[in-house]
Each structure stands twice: as structure tokens, then as C-alpha cells.
Amino acid sequence: MIIESCAPTRVDLAGGTIDIPPLFLFHEDAATVNFAVDLMAHCRIETRDDDKIVIESIDRAEKFETSLGKISQLKDELRLELLSKLVYFFKPEVGFTITTKSEAPAGAGLGGSSTLNIACIGALNRLVGNRYTPDKFIPIAANVETQVIKVPAGFQDYYSAQYGGAACIHFRPDGIEREALDFDTKTLEERIVVCYTGEPRNSGTNNWEITKRHIDGDVKTFVVFEGIRDTSLNLREALLANDWIKTGEILKAAHPQRKSLSPNITTPQMNLLIKKAENNGAIATKVCGAGGGGCIAFFCEEGRKNDVEKVLAKELEAEVLQWNLCKEGLTVKEL
């Protein structure tokens, strides 16, 4: 049996970090806004005639093998830790090779690890006979990833990976709800540049520092998160109205708001790229994910996307990513 799965990464436009439990419980009507992009995470499983389990990551150029009889040892395996813990969780009863790869750069801030998580869960669940219904995938992903990063995992990335499209994710005491956003996504594609800075980042560390400060009762942090919540809700309204002037204004105001949370949101390299982009047609800057490296999304003046891409492409370490909004989420197929 051969199983292949893939899922899209995402660009987060508003609400980042407020999706981490328990933070969203402290801010009524907490929400995030993001859209899926076709920089996919892939998982391939091929069953074997022996009892071997072979785990391989093409991106990390790492591979190791174990056996069905030693599957319990994967619980504490540090090599390819996310994959190891997922295999341990599902405990397949047949030998297999699992191979993963991602089209997004490592540490890009595009939700790559969460997306790979969903892709692997889809494939492993098929391998064990669809043990879980799809509504269980996101809780499983969040819980296993928390075991890996050892701090609470945010939820928004799993929704873009599983469902695709543009969405507002609402966080409430009675649960999390994904609202698909119906607006002119073609204009969004025509006005957003996504640039990889050349500097990977560690979202778990950066987000946990902010989360801990919030939980410890820092008043300034609480007020900033109230603003982050409001930014998400206002952006949702602007997108649904196809109000691109308002969209630009909201995103522009959100960047300094976000930077007030931590001096590590941007680096000198990121600041250089931001200055060049804003001098050549970028209206607003959105640091993707937790910041401190990774990708930056720039919302551009109408007709200026190409100008922004050209000036950023001249920077030696930067890479302008080519992307399209991905309307489909997780797909799993047997070959």
C-alpha cells in the first residue's frame, strides 16, 4: 500500500499568538485571520513486507529505522521527534517507510511544522484504517506538537492546513470555530508579497516568552492582546467588504502593535527588507508567525507588487516566494 498526503502552509494576517491556550480565554471574541498557500507539506507512506519502520525527512536529510517490536521507544526518540511521536501515537501494526518533505523554507513562519503534522496525521490515520474521524485531527496535532516543543501550541495553523482557503478562526470557551471568508482573493494574491528573510526562527521560544508574560499578569501585554484581537475582527470586516484601503490601514497599524510585544519580533536583516519594501510600494508589513526571522508578508499598493518583489530579490540572503492562495486543505490518497 502507498499513501500520499499533502496540506498547505499559511500566511497569518492577524491575531498571531492569541491562538495559544489559554490566552484566547482571557480575551472575549478572540480571533485570528489567515489564508492557506500552495507551499505544501507532503507525507508518503509505503508499507513493507518486513517489520521495519523507516522514518525519513528529506528536508532535514535525516533518516533512521526501528521495528514494530520497538515502537514504544519512539515515545522518547529525539531524532525526527514530531514524526517519531506521531508514529508512536498511531502504533501501526505493519512495517512501513514514512517520508516527508516541505516546499516552504525551514523556519519560515508559515506554519510548516503544524502543516506537516496534519499531513502526517492524515496519512497515518489512513494506514491504521481511518481510526479517527477528521474532526479529531486538529486536537491530536496540537497535543502531539505540544509534547515536542514542550510549550503550548497555537491552533490557527492546523485549520489552514486541514481546510485551506481564507478564514477567520474564532476562539470561545465552548470551542474553536472556523469561519470561511468569502471575498476577492484574487486581489489579495495581486497585492501580497511573501519574502523569506534567510533567517529561520524558533516560534516555540518566542511565543512562550510572550505567553508566560501574559499569564504572569503583565498589564501592558494584556492591553496589546486586546488590540491584537480587535485587529483580527476589524480585518475580517474589511476583507468581507473588499475594502482594500481599510485592509491596508489595519495591517499597517498592526505591525508596531506586534513589535511592542518583543524586541525580537524583527532582526536587523528584517528591518532592512522592511525599509526597502516600504520605499518601493509596500503599504504594510506583516511578520509571519512568531517573528525573529522567517518570512515577511507585504501588502502592496495596487499595481506595485512587482516593484516590491524586484527590490527584495536584489538582497543576497532574501528569497521572494512564489505562491497562490490554496482553496483546498488536507488531501489523502492511496495509490
Rank of each mutant, 00 (worst) to 15 (best):
V33Y: 02
E199Q: 14
F225C: 00
G95V: 01
L80S: 06
Y163S: 12
P21N: 03
V194Y: 01
C288A: 05
L240K: 14
Q147L: 11
H170W: 00
L86D: 06
H255A: 04
T187I: 15
A141K: 07
P8L: 15
P105W: 05
E317T: 04
K91P: 00
G175T: 08
C288I: 03
K150Q: 15
F222K: 15
A14N: 00
A31S: 15
L124F: 06
L80I: 06
I45S: 08
G112I: 05
L312R: 05
A241F: 05
Y196T: 03
G289Y: 09
V37K: 04
L127W: 03
Y196Q: 01
W323Q: 02
L272C: 08
D243F: 10
T99Y: 04
P139G: 14
T146K: 14
R172A: 07
L321E: 01
D182R: 15
I3L: 09
A119H: 07
I138D: 10
F222Y: 15
V194K: 02
Q73G: 03
K220H: 10
D184W: 09
A297N: 06
K150T: 14
T266G: 05
L261Q: 00
A282V: 08
A254W: 00
G293C: 07
P21A: 11
G175K: 09
W208L: 10
L23H: 04
A30V: 04
A142M: 09
P173I: 08
